[in-house]
């Protein structure tokens, strides 16, 4: 199966799949462009295979976040072109302190506004923000899933209920409130005892 052809042909459906929290969408884009991306980056730069895979994974994450937030809704180029443009920026961002030859990286610079290329930046996060990120992994899986689906994947309550097999939207809504309260308590207690 040629994932890339399938993906470019059904660009809009792919974006919709990302928005609806379909995890297969992420796998599809990963499998479609993994080899061409790694080959391109290792040939155009001094990047080795492992580093190229790291850059690729970060670029796929950025692509996913851009799709999820609606920034790709009017995408004129192909997904590949867009992904490689992100990849170029991620690579340059990672090497901003070194002199990197960029002239050889032949990829179209897209006029994309607000392109997310470095989603997580621990340096710029406050202590409490970092604490929230850490404590989330210690929460009950049911809470974690609801908060992740609603706030990170931007799913509606109805979609969260369907995805996580809850009987009604009201159950999810009530649980979401309780989970946020529990998280607040955990953060508060952690700060108090620290």
């Amino acid at each position: 199966m040629d994932y890339a052809i399938q993906l470019e042909k059904n660009k809009t459906q792919w974006i919709e799949a990302v928005k609806s929290g379909d995890s297969k969408a992420l796998e599809l884009v990963y499998r479609a462009y993994r080899k061409p991306f790694v080959n391109w980056l290792t040939q155009q730069t001094s990047c080795n295979q492992d580093m190229a895979l790291d850059v690729f994974q970060e670029s796929v994450l950025a692509l996913y976040k851009n799709a999820k937030s609606g920034r790709l809704d009017d995408l004129k180029s192909g997904i590949k072109t867009y992904l490689f443009a992100i990849g170029k920026r991620v690579w340059l961002y990672r090497n901003r302190q070194h002199k990197v030859k960029t002239s050889a990286m032949e990829i179209e610079d897209l006029p994309v506004k607000e392109l997310i290329v470095n989603p997580s930046n621990l340096d710029s996060m406050s202590e409490r923000q970092q604490l929230v990120s850490q404590l989330l992994s210690k929460m009950r899986p049911s809470c974690r899933s609801i908060l992740f689906s609603f706030y990170y994947e931007n799913l509606r309550l109805k979609e969260v209920a369907e995805k996580l097999n809850y009987k009604s939207v009201n159950v999810v809504k009530a649980m979401k409130g309780r989970c946020m309260e529990a998280l607040k308590k955990m953060v508060y207690q952690h700060i108090k005892t620290a």
């Binding site: 970092q130 604490l131 706030y151």
Partner: peptide, 25 residues
């Protein structure tokens, strides 16, 4: 609190997605 929760959740989510990609790799 809510502002910090949103930033923390975003970071948690990014890490979860990256972890998923690493498993796929």
């Amino acid at each position: 609190y809510f502002e910090d929760f949103m930033v923390g959740l975003e970071d948690f989510g990014d890490k979860a997605v990256l972890q998923e990609l690493k498993s796929l790799e």
